[in-house]
């Protein structure tokens, strides 16, 4: 490479490197450093693992942490199960304009902000909301029903928010499956279930993993949905981080939680990849 080419390459890469460096790497290094400074007296900090020890000694913290992880995995699984038939329909049944229409319909809710969407769900689910009203109207309930502020509501909201990000990579993966391969699966004696298990799902695996990673990441790091739909019972780990940074003004503790959340999601994604035998490279190409 001659110097001119090298300069060109550098200039072309510069925006990306600046973006990554200034907005992603630098803040994370800062947070990492911050997480190791513990408060010994007001405004007096020293290096130590105290913030991390605090996490393991205070049950509220690690239980919230575990709860967030488990519920995120559940949300990812539910999203996958719901998205699969939809993606299947979009990729293999719908043609031309209908296909574009359906994808647009999936996209439509994202034209309003997450906050507004979540508030919409609150209107439906609250005690004086439409569903409660309908339940009373039809005589299924004798008094107003509170559907908000429970785990179900949180999962509902998160699944709703994640669906699109699962459907798109899934539909992409399913679209590339040759119709004759599916027919051959039936022709050689496979039942619908066999064809799904041995041909369709293995083919869609990169899409499944890509969609699951995206949905899982979005869910673990979500803040508004668990807070609004779960209320006091939300107990999402991001709330703990928020509380440390904003309410308690204990930035080092919040930083430690942030790092732990990053490690948690990375570990679960790595485990998921290993479990399904996919590599991050092929998955990213699919997404």
């Amino acid at each position: 490479m001659n110097p001119a080419q090298r300069l060109t390459l550098f200039l072309l890469m510069a925006p990306a490197i600046l973006w990554l460096g200034l907005l992603i790497v630098l803040p994370h290094v800062e947070i990492l450093v911050l997480s190791f400074s513990q408060r010994v007296a007001p405004r007096v900090y020293e290096f130590g693992l105290g913030n991390y020890l605090e996490f393991f000694t205070e049950p509220l913290y690690w239980r919230t942490f575990a709860r967030t992880a488990i519920m995120s995995i559940m949300v990812t699984a539910i999203t996958l199960v719901l998205a699969f038939p939809i993606a299947m329909y979009i990729a293999r049944v719908a043609q031309g304009r209908l296909k574009a229409m359906l994808l647009l319909l999936c996209l439509l809710p994202f034209w309003v902000s997450e906050l507004v969407r979540t508030l919409g769900w609150m209107m439906l689910l609250r005690e004086t909301g439409i569903i409660s009203y309908l339940l009373r109207l039809t005589g299924l309930a004798s008094q107003p029903v509170e559907l908000l502020y429970n785990d179900g509501a949180v999962i509902l909201g998160l699944v709703y928010g994640g669906l699109l990000f699962m459907i798109v990579p899934l539909a992409n993966a399913l679209e590339s499956l040759e119709p004759s391969v599916v027919e051959a699966g039936f022709d050689l004696g496979g039942s619908r279930f066999t064809v799904l298990r041995r041909i369709v799902i293995p083919h869609a695996m990169p899409g499944i993993v890509a969609g699951s990673i995206i949905v899982f990441m979005l869910t673990v790091g979500n803040f508004a949905t668990p807070v609004l739909l779960g209320g006091k019972n939300g107990l999402w780990f991001t709330e703990q981080i928020y509380a440390q940074f904003i309410t308690r003004f204990n930035w080092p503790q919040g930083a430690a939680f942030g790092i732990l959340l990053l490690l948690l999601s990375s570990a679960i994604v790595a485990a998921g990849l290993r479990l399904t035998g996919q590599s991050l490279g092929t998955t990213l190409r699919q997404a």
């Binding site: 040759e178 004759s180 391969v181 027919e183 051959a184 699966g185 039936f186 022709d187 050689l188 004696g189 496979g190 039942s191 041995r198 041909i199 293995p202 083919h203």
Partner: peptide, 18 residues
């Protein structure tokens, strides 16, 4: 199709790549 004593060699062969 999956209960017929007939098997087909497809134009694209349709081998299972997975």
């Amino acid at each position: 199709a999956n209960r017929r004593p007939v098997n087909m060699v497809f134009q694209s062969l349709a081998l299972f790549p997975m």
